[in-house]
């Protein structure tokens, strides 16, 4: 297993990875700013969301625009059991993941018959429907949302911490686990099959791959991971409402994180989450008072990156190297 996890990387790459992890671990100790803590936690949560979407959209090539549905369900799956039964998130989070996988299984069979744009639009519409349902049902507290804060409960049992850094460290470990799972799966038949389906469904069927079954499986795994992200977000905020979690905006952000970092790659979503969260949080903090200017700048930056780096930020080093090589060979030719 160690070989599957680390075998692909050179010593240098492993060293860089180790340094990055150490930096990620000491960063919160270097600052007292709540803004920074919040940013770090959001990066970790969005990395998980991006990795979840990537299973379906990146590896299997089925672009869903409705993953905010599972994000919201993940939150409800910890919020409502707590409200009604006082259930600990340690049980509720895995329950939410299973629940979302089941939802994906049920809706996946019909929805995954659709291809390309039709699938994207259908998932979008489904997520919108679910938002309306959640806003209008009494059982879910309607638009009021769910307040999860409980005074005097056991912080470890109920994951309610005063110090945001505790959330950060816990979520960081969870993110590493999701990352490791993705990495291991990327070397297994399951992910090779998903990539084959993405490449060509006829070719996939010709080597015995049950295309629709594997699509549904990818959708289930994807939903479960995004649900985990939603649960973690709710658990961190201790409050959420459907209007902020289950919107089209959120769905698009999830797609962006994966696309910007490097679609269909193991590390892409983390890189995407770092860039997108920094961009959106910093532009909001510095330009937010000029009503919408932050969104304009944010949008422009996204366009620039997507236009010039269609393979995502992960391809930036290769692009630079290519550019340098070309420059060098031109100079060589000039001499």
């Amino acid at each position: 297993m160690l070989k599957t996890l680390f075998g692909d990387y050179s010593k240098k790459q492993l060293a860089i990875g180790a340094v990055l992890i150490v930096i990620a671990l000491i960063l919160p100790q270097l600052t007292k700013s709540l803004f920074m803590y919040n940013l770090l936690i959001l990066i970790v949560i969005w990395s998980i969301l991006g990795m979840g979407w990537n299973v379906m959209g990146g590896f299997c090539g089925q672009v869903s625009n409705g993953h905010s549905m599972f994000y919201g369900f993940g939150a409800y799956c910890v919020g409502l059991p707590l409200q009604y039964f006082g259930l600990s998130p340690w049980i509720a989070i895995p329950f939410g993941m299973c629940f979302c996988a089941c939802v994906a299984w049920v809706i996946g069979k019909p929805v995954l018959r659709l291809k390309g744009h039709a699938f994207a639009i259908c998932t979008m519409a489904l997520a919108e429907c679910m938002r309306y349902i959640c806003v209008n049902m009494e059982f879910t507290n309607g638009a009021k949302g769910v307040n999860m804060f409980k005074k005097g409960v056991n912080p470890i049992l109920f994951l309610q911490f005063k110090d945001p850094r505790v959330y950060y460290y816990l979520y960081f470990v969870i993110m590493l686990i999701v990352l490791a799972v993705t990495k291991i799966l990327s070397k297994k038949r399951f992910f090779y099959y998903l990539r084959t389906i993405k490449g060509n469904e006829d070719a996939a069927a010709s080597v015995g791959i049950d295309v629709s079954r594997y699509k549904v499986r990818a959708y289930m795994l994807s939903a479960a991971i995004v649900s985990l992200g939603g649960s973690l977000y709710a658990q961190y905020m201790l409050y959420f409402d459907p209007a902020s979690m289950m919107t089209l905006n959120v769905s698009m952000m999830i797609v962006l994180v994966a696309v910007m970092g490097g679609i269909g790659t193991v590390f892409g979503p983390i890189l995407g989450a770092i860039v997108i969260e920094c961009l959106s949080e910093f532009t909001r903090a510095s330009l937010g008072q000029y009503g919408g200017l932050d969104m304009v700048l944010y949008g422009c930056l996204v366009i620039i990156i997507v236009l010039f780096l269609p393979g995502g930020l992960l391809t930036l080093p290769a692009k630079i190297r290519e550019y340098m090589d070309r420059k060098a060979s031109k100079e060589g030719a000039a001499k």
Binding site: T196, G199, N200, D202, S206, D210, V211
Partner: peptide
């Protein structure tokens, strides 16, 4: 029977227009 079932029974096929998985290596 469906295409993947027939493949599993032992029918291999090529396509008139090669349907190679272009983003994967030859080995993959």
């Amino acid at each position: 029977k469906k295409a993947h079932e027939i493949a599993r029974l032992g029918v291999g096929r090529t396509f008139q227009i090669p349907q190679s998985l272009n983003e994967m290596t030859v080995t993959e």
